[in-house]
Simulated assay, not measured.
Amino acid sequence: MFGAIRQWFDPAELRNVGTTPDYRFSLANERTFLAWLRTGLALIAGGLAVVQFLPPMPVRHLREAIAVALLLLGGAVAVRAVDHWARTERAIRLGRELPASRFPAVLALTVGLGALLLTGAVLLGAIGDR
């Protein structure tokens, strides 16, 4: 496990693998990594916003549960981003096929399901206020 983490943070370790690729491929990989980081930060900001601005929900501690879920999901996206960046950079340098990932689909389904659950909670809250 620590070997994988070292590969994430040690540029010399990665540069010793394979051959130097066309810089445009490395820069594209870096842009993708940064986009994933922005997604993670947005989820973390959403979690903080839920705690600060969402009114009390009809289910006790639902607001806090939503916030914690968003915070954890944002952290998972950030960790997954650095792992995917390192694996992709390694594949580019070795001339191998890029690593496949189910993570974007899982993330999309999780966010979609979360939106449906939130919609239900908001509607229940609106009905309960009448």
Rank of each mutant, 00 (worst) to 15 (best):
Asp10Tyr: 03
Leu48Phe: 13
Asp22Gln: 06
Ala67Tyr: 03
Leu72Asn: 05
Asp83Lys: 06
Arg130Lys: 14
Ile66Asp: 01
Thr39Phe: 08
Leu27Gly: 05
Leu14Gln: 14
Arg15Thr: 07
Ala86Ile: 03
Val111Cys: 07
Phe2Leu: 15
Thr32Ala: 03
Arg24Leu: 15
Phe33Arg: 03
Tyr23Ser: 09
Ala121Arg: 05
Ala65Val: 11
Glu97Cys: 09
Val59Gly: 06
Ala81Met: 02
Gly18His: 00
Arg96Ala: 14
Val51Cys: 01
Ile92Ser: 00
Leu94Arg: 11
Glu97Ala: 15
Phe103Lys: 06
Gly128Arg: 13
Leu118His: 02
His84Gly: 07
Thr110Leu: 07
Ala81Glu: 00
Arg130Cys: 02
Val50Asp: 04
Leu71Tyr: 00
Arg80Val: 03
Glu89Leu: 06
Leu37Asp: 04
Arg96Tyr: 13
Arg15Met: 06
Thr88Pro: 05
Thr110Met: 09
Ile44Pro: 04
Gly47Met: 01
Thr39Lys: 03
Ala76Met: 13
Val68Asp: 05
Gly40Lys: 05
Arg90Tyr: 07
Leu113Phe: 07
Leu109Gln: 14
Ala49Leu: 10
Leu43Met: 11
Gly18Trp: 01
Ala105Leu: 15
Leu70Asp: 05
Arg102His: 12
Val17Leu: 12
Gly18Lys: 01
Ala67Lys: 00
Val79Trp: 14
Gly47Ser: 01
Leu54Pro: 01
Asn16Phe: 07
Val77Cys: 05
Leu123Trp: 09
Leu71Pro: 00
Ala65Cys: 15
Ile66Trp: 03
Pro58Tyr: 05
Ala91His: 04
Phe103Tyr: 12
Asp83Ala: 14
Ala78Val: 15
Ala108Cys: 13
Asn16Trp: 11
Val68Ala: 14
His84Phe: 12
Tyr23Leu: 12
